[in-house]
């Protein structure tokens, strides 16, 4: 099934061929967010927020065909 991964800020470095951070990805049926992180070679420790179709989600969330997965690094500055 097909997923759209959107990488934000420093996480875009994981997809140098997609400078806008939008990465279409074929994933196995039933894949979780954690498994997708492995596919795009992003360390879960570098991810602070996960959004699926614009709504906060967990690492264990099972993804569906056509889902939009947003991955965000932590912002802590002030």
């Amino acid at each position: 099934m097909r997923l759209e991964v959107r990488l934000y800020a420093t996480l875009r470095q994981a997809a140098p061929a997609s400078p806008d951070g939008v990465v279409p990805l074929d994933i196995p049926d039933g894949a979780t967010v954690a498994e997708v992180l492995g596919l795009v070679k992003i360390d879960p420790a570098d991810v602070r927020m996960i959004m699926v179709n614009g709504v906060a989600a967990e690492l264990g969330r099972t993804l569906m065909d056509g889902d939009r997965l947003g991955l965000f690094p932590p912002l802590g500055g002030g």
């Binding site: 800020a9 879960p44 420790a45 991810v47 932590p74 912002l75 802590g76 500055g77």
Partner: peptide, 30 residues
């Protein structure tokens, strides 16, 4: 170049929803 803003009213999901992963990490990508 990035920033985030949220208003947390009493009873809303809290900052732990935003910073739920990587507990103990004091700083971010700044």
């Amino acid at each position: 170049f990035t920033g985030q803003i949220a208003t947390i009213l009493p009873g809303d999901p809290g900052l732990d929803r935003i910073y739920k992963l990587c507990a103990g990490q004091a700083k971010g990508i700044e």
